[in-house]
Simulated assay, not measured.
Amino acid sequence: MVKGQRKKDGFQGQKAVIIPRSVLNNKCSTHPLIGKLYITDMGYYPKARYHYRERLHGTDQHILIYCHEGEGRVIIDKQEYKISPGDFYLIPALTRHTYAANANNPWTIFWIHFKGESAGDWVKQIHQYLNSYSGFIPDSEKTIRLFNEIYTPLERGYSMEHLMYSNMYLWHYLSTFIYQEKNKSRMNNTETDTIDSAIDYMQKNVDQNLTLEKIAQHVRFSPSHFSLLFRKKTGFSPIEYYNHLKMQQACQYLLFTKQRIKEIALEVGMSDQHYFSRIFKKTMGVSPQEYRNKRSSEVMLSV
């Protein structure tokens, strides 16, 4: 692309909402709910030929761009990413960056600029999960639908109702870039499949007494490597996570059946009732009997 062919904006069919800074300052940044995360600008550029932007010192907003069609490239703090359909990239505030559409196959992108007290934490969380500022989402229909759910109210003006709805919906939109069921970055696909497979195996065998070695063998990893990988992805050791699933099942037995504590312990693969009670209290904060009594009384009061 030669310099004369670069365009910052102005594409047929484009749409954008640029929220007035007076609205951001008076209604968004100081609000107790939406002040933690709010949109400053958002829009859609279809087939944005020669789209180009360079910010040597970044901007004071974080930027999320999702590519629906076409191709482009992004450079974030000297790291270059090639962008294809389904890819997204995240640019942290105050970070030098450049991005440009492919001249022969220009991208179609959906973009949001956002800031707020929690905005930086969101950026860190997404980067930590993906180990990258770029990721991949295969469900374009859902992603675009959610984008429009946020965009449409703002297009109709900046009433408090519209601002509240769109900015609170932004939390859900950002979460889909991390936790969408099929949102597995190309870099971490194998690792994610391994953890998902292990959790499925634990759930199906919650009535057993699986060991770390048995779970690791199921996913064909050494116990030590599997433990490191599992803790990195979930924040828990495999056995601690397995016990959480057991206690989750035990809670249902305590609430919805009249089985004795000893019987429930056996249902979740624990032959020692005292050990079961100790693990339950450590996890839930109360003993199994206290949990049953408390929950039963709450159910009666709510009827």
Score class of each variant (00 low, 15 high):
G4D: 14
G4V: 11
G4P: 08
G4K: 11
G4Q: 13
Q5H: 10
Q5T: 09
Q5P: 05
Q5C: 14
R6A: 03
R6K: 10
R6H: 06
K7E: 04
K7M: 08
K7H: 09
K7N: 08
K8M: 13
K8W: 12
K8C: 09
K8R: 15
K8H: 12
K8S: 12
K8P: 05
D9A: 12
D9P: 05
D9R: 12
D9L: 10
G10S: 07
G10Y: 03
F11H: 04
Q12K: 15
Q12V: 15
Q12G: 11
Q12F: 13
Q12Y: 14
Q12E: 13
Q12H: 15
G13D: 06
G13Q: 05
G13I: 03
G13T: 03
G13L: 04
G13S: 07
G13A: 05
G13V: 03
Q14W: 06
Q14A: 08
Q14R: 11
Q14C: 06
Q14K: 09
Q14F: 10
K15M: 08
K15F: 06
K15P: 04
K15T: 07
K15Q: 07
K15E: 10
A16F: 12
A16S: 15
A16P: 10
A16E: 15
A16V: 13
A16D: 14
V17G: 00
V17N: 00
V17L: 02
V17I: 06
I18L: 15
I18G: 12
I18P: 10
I18S: 14
I18K: 14
I18F: 15
I19G: 00
I19Q: 00
I19T: 00
I19M: 01
I19F: 01
P20M: 04
P20R: 02
P20L: 02
P20S: 05
P20I: 02
R21M: 08
R21T: 13
R21D: 09
R21I: 07
R21N: 11
S22A: 11
V23D: 01
V23Q: 00
L24D: 03
L24G: 01
L24P: 00
L24V: 06
L24M: 07
L24R: 02
L24F: 03
N25F: 07
N25H: 10
N25G: 09
N25D: 14
N25T: 11
N25I: 09
N26V: 13
N26H: 12
N26E: 15
N26G: 12
K27Y: 04
K27R: 10
K27Q: 06
K27C: 05
C28F: 01
C28I: 01
C28E: 03
S29W: 05
S29I: 09
S29C: 09
T30C: 13
T30L: 11
T30A: 12
T30R: 13
T30P: 01
T30D: 10
T30N: 14
H31Y: 02
H31C: 02
H31G: 03
H31W: 02
H31S: 06
H31M: 03
P32V: 05
P32Q: 04
P32N: 04
P32F: 04
P32I: 05
P32H: 02
L33S: 12
L33K: 09
L33G: 07
L33R: 09
